[in-house]
Simulated assay, not measured.
Amino acid sequence: MLEGARRRQILVRRADRPGDLGWMVMAHGELYEQQFGWNADFEALVARIVADYAAKRSSAAEAAWIAEADGERVGCVMLVAGDDQPGVAKLRVLLVTSHARGLGMGTRLVEEALVFARGAGYRSVTLWTTDNLASARRIYQRFGFILTDEKPHRGFGHDLVGQTWTLDLLDGPAE
């Protein structure tokens, strides 16, 4: 069998191993600089999100996942409690590396997070993203997320359009 044609071993697991959280920060910094030219401000934002998770995580209400292909980290996502709204969770730091795209990793990561959110008793899940992340947006839409806010945003060295998406877990598809 040709090397490129061999079946890859895919795994989505909890982000509970040494290096997982650091990898999330590094992978975001590198990938978004390569793909979009985003500066270190983005990596700093991801570092704050990951550090807050590591310092304050409630295992009953928050979790993070790593996707692996052939034993190598290739994706991640977090689900954390909303800042000021009980019953509302936030989907954070979804990423799939370039060489793992097309394997369904993004969908599997979001699915794990939403299953966890439902089990933890959240009523809804929100997320913030930018409009140029079309692949992620398609995943969110597939799960029933609705665009609830959109406004111009200057960040990461670029003029962007920030978007807030929301999924009502009581009414949204359970996919």
Rank of each mutant, 00 (worst) to 15 (best):
L133N: 05
L103K: 04
Q163Y: 08
K56W: 03
E33F: 11
D149I: 01
T97H: 01
G121P: 03
T130N: 11
D20C: 13
Y32K: 08
R7W: 00
Y122N: 04
S124H: 05
A47C: 06
I49C: 03
K90T: 00
V74D: 02
D41E: 14
I49L: 04
V50M: 07
M24D: 04
D83Q: 07
G29K: 11
A100W: 00
P18H: 04
A174L: 13
L109K: 07
G104V: 07
R17S: 10
R123N: 13
W65C: 06
A5N: 05
Y53G: 05
P173G: 11
R92G: 00
A69N: 07
D149C: 03
I49K: 02
G104L: 10
A69K: 11
E30A: 12
I66D: 02
G104K: 09
E72S: 12
A60S: 13
A89M: 06
G22K: 03
D168S: 06
P152W: 07
L31W: 02
W23V: 12
Q85W: 00
G22D: 10
V77L: 05
R48W: 08
E62R: 10
D41H: 06
L94P: 08
Y122R: 09
D70Q: 11
L103T: 09
A81E: 13
H158N: 13
Q163E: 15
V125C: 11
K56H: 13
L21F: 00
D52Q: 09
M24Q: 13
G82E: 04
R101D: 03
Q163M: 15
H99K: 09
A60P: 01
T107N: 11
A54S: 14
L11D: 15
A117N: 03
S58D: 15
L170D: 11
D83C: 02
A60N: 09
